[in-house]
């Protein structure tokens, strides 16, 4: 099972992601701003395997978090999926900012399951 960090300021959506991910056996940490995300990434010894990142966050954009992850050597293996309502940003998110995947909102459960499975070597998440 994987360690997954959710960086999203929509608390209902955070709870929804958490329900799904915890039921699939992952360890989940929820962060609601870019500053808190960077702080957690600096402080915590256990680096996340995967970050589910929103772009439009209070204060700095989620792109700042992505840039930080890409610059920090110990986060070299951390995968980042941007899930955003700015649906026309897919190409830039991957080519310019270095995301591993871009998912436009609203994302379906099936798409989320498949995408997370790709990055966590867990292709067949079973609900409890």
């Amino acid at each position: 099972m994987s360690k997954i960090m959710i960086v999203e300021d929509d608390l209902d959506l955070c709870e929804t992601y958490t329900d799904f991910l915890e039921a699939a056996g992952h360890t989940v940490k929820v962060i609601t701003s870019s500053a808190q995300a960077i702080d957690a990434l600096i402080r915590e010894r256990n680096v996340p395997d995967l970050v589910i990142l929103d772009m439009n966050l209070p204060g700095e954009s989620g792109i700042v978090v992505l840039g930080f992850i890409r610059r920090l050597p110990r986060l070299h293996n951390t995968k980042v999926i941007i899930v955003s309502g700015y649906v026309d940003m897919a190409n830039r998110a991957i080519a310019e900012w270095g995301a591993d995947l871009f998912l436009p909102k609203p994302v379906s459960l099936e798409k989320l399951r498949t995408s997370i499975g790709t990055f966590t070597s867990q292709n067949n998440v079973v609900m409890q």
Partner: peptide, 16 residues
């Protein structure tokens, strides 16, 4: 943009 977050919650929660 702002409507897509709540729509995500609705669709994923109902799927779950």
């Amino acid at each position: 943009h702002d409507m897509r977050g709540p729509l995500s919650t609705l669709t994923i929660t109902s799927d779950l």
